Simulated scan of single mutants.
Amino acid sequence: MSVVPLQALPIEQLRQRSSTKWRKYGDDVLPFFVAETDYPAAPAITAVLTRAVSLGDTGYTPPDPGVATAYAGFAARRFGWQIDPARVRTTCDVMMAIVEVLRHAIRPGDRVVVTPPVYPPFFECVPEAGGVVERVPLVDLGTSWELDLAGIEAALAGGARAVLLCNPHNPTGTVHSRETLAALADIAARFDAVVISDEIHAPLTNRGATFTPFLDASPVAARVGYAVVSASKAFNLAGLKCALIVTADDATSKIVRSLPDEVEWRTGHFGALAAVAAFSEESDPWLDAQLAALDENRVLLADLLAEHVPAARYRIPDAGFLAWVDLSALGWGDNPAVKIRREAAVAFHLGPYFGDEGKGHVRINFGCSPDLLAEAVRRVGSLV
C-alpha cells in the first residue's frame, strides 16, 4: 500500500518558530542550513508533551524513563536489530555521548580517525575528549562514497586508538554496507581500537537502501563498538536533549555503566518523554509518511539542479534529508554558500566546515516543502 507523503508546514507558520533555523537570518533569507525539518510533529509526541505541560511535569528525568525499552522495540521493528535495554544509557545529546565514551576509550593525546567530509562537530569533540583528529577521507568512487579501509588500517597501525564513524554518513547520505562495517570492525580489533558509531540518521534510511547498525554488523563489531543514537533528527527533537549510548558486549557495557551519574542526569525530561513517543509503534506511520516526502524531495532536488544549476554535481543520498552538492564548477570559490546567501538570500550549510573535501560544496536541507525547495534552487540559478 502506498504511503501519502507528509506535508510540510507553510512558511508563514514556520517563521513563527523560534529555533535556529528560523531566527539566525532575516525573513528575506530562505534557510536550508541547519538540520531542522519543516514538518509538523508526530501526533504521539505532541500529545505526550502537551500532557506534560498541562500537568506541570517539568522536573528531573527519572532513573528509567522508558527510552531504552522503547528504542529496543524500534530497532527490532525498523532494523531487525535485537538489543538489550540493560545495555543502554541516556544522556543529553549525541555529541556529548561521543565525548564521554571517547574520554574512557582513549588516553590524552591519542589519535582518533574521522572520515571527512563529515559532520563539523566531529572535529571539535575529539579534542574536547583529549584526543587528536586523524583525517582519513572517504573514497570518492565517482558515483558513491565509501570508507577508506586501507587508510583507516594504516592510521590504526600507526597508533590511532579509535574510529569515529558516521553511519549513515553526514553529509553524503551514504549507508555503509554490512560487509564494510564488518571489515572495519576486524581492522579495529586487530589493533585493539574501538569504533564509536553515530547513528542519528539511521531512522531516515530510504526504502531503496538497507541500514546496518554497526553493533549488528558482526560479532567482532559487537565487541569493539559503541553506538550513539537519538530520535532528534528523524523526529526534529534536537532542542529537547535526549540521546542513547548502546553497547552489545560485557566489556563495553561495563565502561558505559562506569560513566558518571551526571552523564545520565543531563538527559532532558521532555526529551525522554518525546523519545519514548517517537520510538513507539504509534509513530511508525508518521515516520513512513516523512520518508515518503523526503524520497520525493531528494529526487526533485536532482531535477531542479539539472534545470537551474546544470553545473552542480549531486548524488541522491541513501539516507537523511541532507544533500551534498558540489558547486566548484561554477567558480564561486571554496565557500559558495557565502555568495549564495548574500546574493540569492538562500542559506545553505558551508561546505568547508565539513573538512577540506568540502571546498566548493554546500549542504542543502531538503526536509521542507517542494515549493520552498524549488524557490531556493531557482534563486541560486539566477546567479548562474
Rank of each mutant, 00 (worst) to 15 (best):
L6P: 08
I11V: 15
Q13V: 15
Q16V: 10
A35H: 14
T37F: 06
A41V: 04
V53L: 10
G59K: 12
T61E: 07
A72R: 11
G73Y: 06
A75L: 03
A75T: 02
I83W: 01
D84C: 07
V88D: 01
R89S: 08
T90K: 04
H104I: 05
P108V: 02
V118K: 06
Y119R: 03
P121G: 04
E128Q: 15
V133C: 09
R135P: 01
L138C: 04
T143I: 03
T143M: 00
L149P: 00
L149A: 03
A154P: 03
V163Y: 13
V163I: 15
N167C: 12
P168R: 09
P171S: 00
T180P: 11
L181I: 14
A182C: 08
A185R: 07
A189T: 13
D192A: 15
A193C: 14
E199F: 08
H201S: 14
N206G: 15
R207L: 13
T212A: 15
A222R: 15
R223D: 11
A231L: 08
K241F: 13
L244G: 02
D249G: 02
D250N: 11
S253Y: 05
I255A: 02
S258F: 07
L259A: 05
P260D: 12
D261F: 11
G268A: 09
G271S: 10
A274C: 03
E282N: 11
W286T: 13
L287S: 10
L287T: 08
A302Q: 13
A302G: 15
E307S: 12
H308S: 08
P310S: 04
A311W: 08
I316M: 04
G320I: 00
A323R: 03
S328Q: 05
A329M: 03
L330I: 02
P336Q: 00
V346W: 01
G355A: 03
D356W: 00
G360R: 06
C368L: 05
L373Y: 04
L373H: 01
A376R: 03
V384W: 01
